[in-house]
């Protein structure tokens, strides 16, 4: 029995999800590949966004994939860490901004 939920070699099998639903799988990968093509944002910028989101959703496959992708694009470790801090700031901010709700409630009940 597999001892962990995640296996790094599963990342290489991502494409296999189409085997159980060809139509939707194909549509997804076509969309996915289109998203990462250069548009108003460069492929490099998109790679950094993907890396930050990967950490936010804590997807080990995505972290593996977009760290490697960033290195291939010449993205430095300093740039990668800055992108993560953006993700961290938004996550932290999302927690703290709800503090206003808490403050409102306290003020209403016990102000």
């Amino acid at each position: 029995m597999q001892k962990t939920y995640y296996d790094p070699s599963d990342l290489k099998k991502f494409g296999k999800i189409s085997e159980w639903n060809e139509e939707l799988g194909s549509k997804f990968f076509e969309y996915y590949n289109s998203v990462f093509k250069e548009g108003s944002l460069s492929e490099r910028e998109k790679s950094l966004i993907a890396l930050a989101v990967a950490h936010t959703i804590q997807c080990p496959y995505c972290i593996d994939a977009y760290t490697g992708d960033g290195l291939q694009r010449g993205i430095t470790k300093e740039e990668m860490m800055e992108a993560l801090h953006v993700a961290g700031a938004i996550r932290g901010g999302a927690t703290l901004v709800h503090g206003v709700q808490m403050m409102n409630k306290v003020n209403k009940l016990d102000g």
Partner: peptide, 14 residues
């Protein structure tokens, strides 16, 4: 390091 080069044209631009 232990990774392959990215797209040559994009690297050249950067």
């Amino acid at each position: 390091g232990a990774f392959l080069p990215g797209d040559q044209a994009a690297l050249e631009r950067d």
